[in-house]
Simulated scan of single mutants.
Amino acid sequence: MKLNLEQIPRVKTITKEKFLKDHVELQKPVVIERLIEDWTAYKKWNLSYIKTLAGHKTVPIYDDRPVSSERKFNEAHTSMKMSEYIDLLKKEPTNYRIFLYSLLKEVPELQNDFTYPDAIGLKFMKKLPYLFFGGGGSKVFMHYDIDLANILHFHFHGEKQCILFPPSETKYLYKVPHSLISHQDIDFENPDFEKWPALKNAKGYITNLKHGETLYMPEGYWHQMTYLTPGFSMSIRSVPKKTTNFIEATYNVFIMRYLDNFMRKTRGQKWIQYKNNKAISRTNKRNG
């Protein structure tokens, strides 16, 4: 038995009016296949190009180890030179990923390769474009973003699978309290419904993104990414329009993550285990 996932709708291009009416207002995802074909990045951005511009940079590296009290919220697991990392991606499958790589700060030359697609009607935060890299087979665990933003996610070099769930499905996803993640023992590509019975009720979306395609993820959407081949993506963000989401985002940014770091420091692994146990008991109780 598989998850209840429907394909994310696809369009070649889209007007501002249709994008705002059918997707932003209704909070429905969409893949826009040809939104960025006029970007220099569409023609130039691949792993070799990034290595040429940023190979000398030391970058934070993440893998798929479970959340631990030994590290702070979103703290990297190791680091290496970008050139070494890209060589590794090209050589063999790896679960090493780069997460939230600050494009403006680290490689300002890349800013010349793209423009913000303001014509679709969203006002984007111009100082927050981030790059995400992954090796073939690597996965980004199921989570939602701390700021609950409307996100445009542009993919480059290769192919990645994206599984999305709207916020309405949170009650089925074994959300870990005081966190932005679902229980990390869940395999969303091959779920064990005997162990995680509430997942049978969750309704979500799936798509595979290829080079140059754009995924719109509405506010607070859960997402898990699997790099089917080595590649990278860029995200730009627009603040949440729903008042409740803006309030939650403010809490997440200014209170939740610091509370979680404090509890990790003071209670250690017991705090992590407590949260994981609560994720299971609360979800099963709600759906029992």
Rank of each mutant, 00 (worst) to 15 (best):
Ser83Pro: 06
Ser238Phe: 05
Asn276Gln: 15
Asn208Trp: 07
Thr52Ser: 15
Met142Gly: 05
Val59Met: 08
Lys242Phe: 07
Asp147Met: 08
Pro60Val: 04
Lys127Ile: 03
Asn190Leu: 01
Ala41Thr: 12
Lys16Gln: 14
Lys278His: 06
Pro191Gly: 03
Tyr227Thr: 02
Asn261Trp: 04
Pro117Glu: 07
Ala198Cys: 06
Ile163Val: 10
His77Pro: 04
Trp196Asp: 01
Glu37Ala: 11
Ala54Asn: 09
Leu53Ser: 08
Met1Glu: 12
Gly134Ser: 06
Tyr274Trp: 12
Leu180Ala: 04
Pro167His: 05
Leu100Val: 09
Ser102Val: 00
Lys139Gly: 01
His223Glu: 00
Glu169Gln: 15
Tyr216Gln: 02
Pro66Val: 11
Asp87Pro: 01
Glu70Tyr: 09
Leu131Pro: 01
Lys91Arg: 12
Glu25Gly: 09
Gln111Lys: 11
Lys18Leu: 13
Gly204Tyr: 00
Pro240Ile: 00
Gly220Asn: 01
Met125Lys: 11
Lys242Arg: 14
Tyr116Arg: 02
Glu219Cys: 01
Ile32Ala: 09
Gly204Asn: 03
Ala279Thr: 05
Thr207Phe: 07
Ala41His: 11
Val140Leu: 07
Lys203Asn: 04
Pro166Gln: 11
Tyr144Glu: 02
His157Trp: 14
His56Leu: 13
Thr250Cys: 03
Phe73Leu: 04
Arg282Phe: 10
Lys242Trp: 10
Arg65Asp: 13
Asn190Ile: 02
Tyr101Glu: 07
Thr229Cys: 04
Tyr96Gly: 07
Thr229Ser: 12
Ile120Arg: 02
Phe114Cys: 00
Lys241Ser: 08
Arg10Thr: 13
His23Thr: 12
Ile163Lys: 03
Pro129Val: 00
Lys81Asn: 10
Thr250Met: 05
Asn46Ser: 14
Ser79Arg: 13
Ile146Lys: 00
Tyr258Lys: 13
Tyr96Met: 09
Pro129Arg: 01
Thr243Asp: 10
Glu106Met: 03
Leu173Met: 05
Lys123Cys: 01
Glu25Cys: 11
Tyr205Gly: 06
Thr15Leu: 02
Ser238Gly: 10
Ile206Glu: 14
Leu131Gln: 05
Thr13Leu: 15
Lys44Asn: 15
Val253Ser: 07
Trp196Ser: 01
Phe156Ala: 08
Glu106Thr: 11
Val107Met: 05
Val239Arg: 09
Trp271Lys: 11
Lys123His: 06
Trp271Ser: 11
Thr58Ala: 09
Leu5Tyr: 07
Arg10Lys: 15
Tyr116His: 05
Ala76Cys: 11
Pro129Phe: 00
Glu75Leu: 02
Asp22Met: 04
Tyr49Glu: 15
Asp87Leu: 07
Leu173Ile: 01
Gln161Phe: 05
Ile186Pro: 03
Asp147Pro: 05
Glu17Asp: 10
Ala202Ile: 06
Leu259His: 13
Ser179Gly: 12
Phe188Cys: 03
Phe73Trp: 10
Ile280Tyr: 03
Ala54Lys: 09
Trp196Thr: 02
Leu47Thr: 14
Val253Asp: 08
Phe73Lys: 02
Phe124Thr: 00
Glu248Asn: 08
Lys16Asp: 09
Leu228Gln: 10
Asn190His: 03
His77Ala: 12
Val59Arg: 08
Lys28Ser: 10
Thr78Cys: 14
Lys195Glu: 14
Thr226Glu: 05
Ser138Trp: 08
Lys210Val: 11
Arg34His: 15
His143Thr: 04
Asp185Tyr: 03
Leu215Ala: 10
Leu5Arg: 09
Glu33Pro: 06
Met1Val: 13
Leu122Thr: 00
Thr13Pro: 04
